[in-house]
Amino acid sequence: MRIIPSVVAAALTAAVSVQAQQLSGAGATFPAPLYQRWSVEYNKQVPAIQVNYQSVGSGAGVKNFLQGVVDFGASDAAMTDAEIAKSPRGAVMIPATAGSVVLAYNLPDIKNLRLSRAALVGIFLGKITKWNDPAIVECNPGTPLPPTAINVAFRSDGSGTTFVFTQHLAAISPEFDEEVGADKSVVFPVGIGGKGNEGVTALVKQTPGTIGYVEFGYAEQNGLSCAAIENKSGQFVAPTAESGAAALASVELPENLRAWPVDPAAPGAYPITTFTWLLLYKKYDDAAKLKALKDFVTYGLTEGQSLATQLGYIPLPEAVVAKANAALGTVE
């Protein structure tokens, strides 16, 4: 192998070049594109700070955070009190951005599908198997629904997306809670699993008659049709940045900033919406690192929010940003 000496030499040369302040983070997959974008944009403003973020999954992110091998973590499910108790350096959870989970479907001639709560639960429990089932026809008056089979697509990998989606279904249907339950990976009684949003998107795109749940940004970028979902107040709400923001605004965040709009009742609120959190330690030993991290997170909470809409995320409501900034202040 002739490449080794030259590579080693290159590595050594690079090693003597200027060292920037490096911050590394790992965790949730859902916000990874946004965090990486923040990292690049922030590096343009402050070249001395390099932030590395890699998606390893929320579960692994929390684990790495507790093991202290990262400078910050990230999780779609925040951290449980038991997990926080295990952290030797404490933990501060900061909501950093938010997103909706949408029901993407493939019915070539139908653009404005509406799904009632009963229809949504029925489909994912395998009780409703045809598109022209009375439960679906009922909430789509005048739409010519085909008599074809419904193919269900779900996320096969453990994901915050599944967590949020099943959490909502379990909240609106005791039967779903009983049979499937809410978690990052669950077993649906029907359908096939795609790995990642891209896997579910491929399943939906490939076969007419398929319905699956993906992140809003994914459906938006891929031009998938998304169903309007009935919320607690009986309105059918299509997923948009506004309807997502309405759901977020309806949540009163507790002191630890961990809360989910599980079944928002606010008018115009899209029912399946969630925050995602950055996990910071309560104490940092290295003052330079602490300052760099605080500056980076502040950037994300302020200027960074303007990038959210462009990438298919929902910017945080003002009130949440204020609380998040206050929480950031407690980090020392």
Binding site: G57, G59, A60, K63, D157, G160, K184, S185, G193
Partner: peptide, 18 residues
């Protein structure tokens, strides 16, 4: 029919497992 393997199970669930 869709199926699963041990290795793909690991790949699917390891990142989010607790």
């Amino acid at each position: 029919a869709p199926s699963g393997t041990l290795a793909s199970l690991l790949a699917n669930q390891f990142g989010e497992a607790e």
